[in-house]
Amino acid sequence: MHPAGPAAATIATLWWVLLAGATAIFLFVAGLIVLAWRRAPGKSDERVFVVGLGLAFPLVVLAALLAYGLFIGERLLPRAGPDVVTVQAEARQWAWRFGYADAPGRVTEGVLHIPAGRPVDVAITTADVIHAFWVPRLAGKLDAVPGRVNVLRIEAGSPGRYEGLGSEYNGPGYRDHRFTVVAHDPAGWDRFLQDETP
């Protein structure tokens, strides 16, 4: 909930919209129930409750919400672009290994280096069981599934260190299945690619 990149920021905004809407609906329903005690008993209209509130109301709200969610989801997908950086993440029990398309052969353990301010596609795989790649402050999560490569788009707004987590339960070492994402400024990224310790 402290977004540091466009994907995480979009989802954070989505959350605040959802929370506001949910609170309003909850208060509305609670109000209706309380009113049942406050009003004089009598015939109430089945059409109002069942058709109006039960059918029409959720259909309208949900249709709007769904459209909003799909629109965002489409925008968050990894799409080709001129400055997209590709990295590989391979998970195993209980470690992470990262590779870099721009520096073939370069491998880092437990630390993922990315350039800040540029979209990064992470190609996620696993060497054993199912894991998930998650950097909470940068984007949502994506699973590492045996035999498959899943691609997640992340982006850090500014240079810094961000905590990454394995977020699919994977056995006794799950708690400490972590990694760090280091986002570099352009100069630092170039230094990293040239195999210098940044």
Binding site: A8, L14, L18, I72, L76, G140
Partner: peptide, 10 residues
């Protein structure tokens, strides 16, 4: 809502 689930999942 899919994008929210990407954050909240697990």
């Amino acid at each position: 809502i899919v994008p929210f689930d990407w954050q909240a999942h697990d």
